[in-house]
Design a protein around this nucleic acid. Structure first.
Lengths: 240, 240
DNA sequence: CGGTTGCTTGATTCGCGTCAAATGCGGTGG
DNA sequence: CCACCGCATTTGACGCGAATCAAGCAACCG
């Protein structure tokens, strides 16, 4: 079912009625597959539809002059990768797949209709925007003030929780088909230094990352090192 | 007029009808003054109202163990400092005034009513959330990949544009009643290093920051150094 | 199998942090 | 109006964490 992961994610936080589920289903105009490393959107474009990620990993990033890029968000199954394009009209960054992906297209016209007729569902979509923003805030904190070691630990803690909500992570580990280069671009390190940092985490017996597989040896110690507080992921179930 | 700055900000991007203006006005339950360095909200609280900043400067921040803080957002007159609390229910960071402020309280019940009855106004509020998120993204880029010099230049470029939208900045400068310590907490530097960086900007003839006053000597060069592209501030006028 | 991409490690450099002290400045009270 | 206090700013000396440069290795893929 294309909507499963999105619905799981939403239903952690609030009720979603069958009518709302139907409205979301009707909003999808098309489902397609997309290979890895393909742009879904580029800076300056004005898409007429938003993209819901059904499977795979997608990032949003910005390039700077010195040819480095900063990945500003990572998206997993069930995330609306550019819901904000409905609201902002133009996008101010690039969006690309990191693995082969399955994506659903949601025309802005149908989102508009939802905002005209379904206040509660609109608030849920708005909530998703706020959730993305909360995650971004936490990345700002990492980039600004956490050491390489804590920053690295933190992103793996965050992804563990986010993936566990859609049944794709356990306490002991999860699959994450990213390269060290890509992860380093998320956390503002060079790939070389990330590699050394991963070695340190491994040698300390906290976690391991090898060939797209995260193995967590000591979750409490890892979360403590990262100062990971999942409050920012807003896991509480509340009427919205 | 309490709403002037918010309306100016919105009307740069879209039409706001008189009825909508009235609805916003009716949403305000109270206006009050607040001294500098006062918390408006703390991590974990669940406020029943959002706060619209009418005058002054407010920041959002998170503290880490090592007693350092990262400021994740700066708000100026006309900004909803915690519109997201309506959507997220609990706040995951601290919000405090940096200067004496005048703030308006907007009960969540009235925001709820707006979402139930005014789709277009709801979309405008949602847009404000997305605008904040776009600014946060740009801060992530700065924190992750820009040098101290570019990062410093960038925040002054951004604030110049944001303040100019509400008539509080010129090409040549603006008032900004912040300390170097506070600015350094925004851009992930130490106050000492920011001070050296400001000296460098001054010696290069680009800009000066003294006693809460920004003087810009060479705006094009400053923006070039910062790689400042205002696209992320979404200044285009579009139907939402 | 050879080519390509990602991972790993070492040597070195450098940007920014840390520590410490001096200077400047606005506010307060006598 | 001046003396003093506390905080912000400025500067210097020094150290460290992460970047850079470079080379070798492992894994995958046609």
């Amino acid at each position: 079912m294309p909507l499963d992961n999105l619905l799981m994610k939403l239903r952690v936080r609030d009720e979603v009625s069958l009518a709302e589920e139907g409205a979301l289903r009707d909003a999808i105009s098309q489902v397609r597959d997309c290979p890895a490393d393909r742009h879904l959107l580029r800076e300056g474009q004005e898409p007429g539809a938003s993209t819901l990620l059904l499977d795979g990993l997608v990032c949003r990033y910005r390039d700077l002059r010195n040819a480095e890029r900063q990945i500003t968000a990572l998206h997993i199954s069930g995330d609306f990768v550019d819901l904000h394009s409905f609201s902002l009209k133009s996008v101010d960054h690039n969006i690309m797949t990191l693995t082969p992906c399955r994506v659903a297209t949601v025309p802005h016209a149908r989102l508009l209709e939802i905002t005209e007729t379904r206040p509660h569902l609109t608030r849920l979509l708005w909530f998703l925007t706020n959730l993305d923003a909360a995650i971004q805030r936490e990345w700002e904190v990492s980039l600004g003030r956490r050491s390489a070691l804590a920053r690295t630990a933190h992103i793996f803690c965050e992804l563990r929780v986010r993936l566990s909500l859609i049944g794709q992570a356990a306490e002991t580990g999860y699959k994450l088909k990213l390269t060290q280069i890509e992860i380093s671009e998320c956390i503002g390190l060079t790939a070389v230094h990330l590699n050394r940092t991963l070695r340190e985490l491994r040698e300390r017996g906290l976690m391991e990352f090898r060939r797209g597989e995260v193995t967590i040896m000591d979750l409490p110690a890892l979360e403590e090192l990262a100062e990971f507080r999942p409050a920012y992921l807003h896991l509480e179930h509340r009427p919205h």
